[in-house]
């Protein structure tokens, strides 16, 4: 049920992101979503891709530093206040979010947000109990 996210270390230098993406395209790996968190000198690229193991391997072979992280994809109603309510729920259950970002596509007309919790299993259980729908990995990567 967890979604596998690829995190990649990149320096803030021209052309670096492009050369990482080239490695993936050569392996015919499709990027379902991509977001960059950056500070002055470096950034962390977070991606959800098809065939994540193979993608990680290819990046490492090309001397990129990357890691694989489990995240949760959660359906959020596409109406005002829905995200805020979701965050309230996390708060109530003392679930710590390390970071979050939006998935690029809607699924079944609903928005999908990706969350990285510090304790993914506790978070999952609490959210299911609260009636949230956790999107399966297969739905996200389309396989």
């Amino acid at each position: 049920m967890n979604v596998t996210q690829l995190s990649l270390f990149l320096e803030n230098k021209p052309g670096r992101l492009q050369s990482a993406l080239k490695v993936l395209s050569e392996k015919n790996i499709n990027i379902r979503t991509l977001t960059i968190a950056e500070v002055t000198d470096f950034g962390i690229v977070r991606m959800i891709v098809t065939r994540s193991d193979e993608a990680a391997r290819a990046l490492k072979e090309n001397h990129f530093t990357c890691s694989v992280t489990e995240v949760l994809a959660i359906e959020i109603d596409d109406v005002p206040g829905a995200l805020s309510r979701a965050l309230e729920t996390f708060n109530k259950h003392h679930l710590n979010i390390e970071y979050m970002y939006a998935f690029t596509e809607k699924i079944d007309d609903k928005a999908v947000m990706i969350f990285r919790f510090d304790d993914i299993e506790t978070a999952k259980k609490a959210l299911i109990d609260e009636g949230y729908h956790i999107v399966k990995k297969t739905e996200i990567i389309g396989e």
């Binding site: 995190s7 270390f9 500070v39 470096f42 962390i44 977070r46 530093t65 990357c66 890691s67 992280t69």
Partner: peptide, 15 residues
């Protein structure tokens, strides 16, 4: 150089 042992997917940890 950031190798796999010191890398984290969180900016906070690297900072």
């Amino acid at each position: 150089e950031v190798n796999e042992r010191i890398f984290s997917d969180e900016i906070k940890v690297l900072n």
